[in-house]
Amino acid sequence: MALQSQYVFTLYVDLAPALDFGKTTSSGNRRFIPITGGRLEGPNLKGEILPGGGDWNAVRADGVVHVLAKYAIRLEDGTMVNVHNEGYGRASQTVMEGVFSGQPGGAVPEGSEWYTKTWPRFEVADNTKHAWMCRTCFVGNLLKPEGPGHVQIEVFELL
Rank of each mutant, 00 (worst) to 15 (best):
T25H: 12
R39I: 14
P104K: 10
V83E: 01
V124I: 10
F156L: 08
E97P: 13
H130I: 00
K46V: 05
N127M: 07
Y115A: 13
T79R: 07
G87Y: 07
A18C: 10
T10H: 07
P109T: 00
V151N: 06
N44I: 03
C137F: 14
E113R: 08
N141I: 13
P43S: 08
R60H: 04
G37C: 08
G42S: 02
A91E: 07
L3K: 13
G38R: 05
I73V: 03
G47E: 01
T116L: 07
E113M: 12
A131S: 09
V8M: 11
L45C: 02
Q6H: 14
N44T: 10
A2S: 07
G87W: 06
T10L: 13
L142M: 14
V67M: 10
P43W: 05
F9H: 11
G78L: 07
A18W: 01
P145Q: 06
E86A: 09
F156M: 12
D20L: 11
H150Q: 06
H84M: 06
F32E: 05
Q152F: 08
L15F: 13
V59Q: 07
T24M: 04
L75W: 04
R60N: 09
E110A: 08
P145K: 06
L40S: 10
S92T: 04
V13F: 06
D77E: 02
E48N: 14
F122A: 09
L158K: 13
N127Q: 11
K23G: 15
G63N: 07
P120S: 05
L15C: 06
N29Q: 13
D55Y: 10
G78V: 04
D77G: 03
L11M: 14
E154Q: 15
K70A: 11
D77S: 05
Q4V: 08
G38N: 08
R60S: 09
I153C: 14
S27Q: 14
G52W: 05
R121M: 13
Y88D: 07
M133Y: 05
E146L: 15
V139I: 14
S112K: 00
N141H: 13
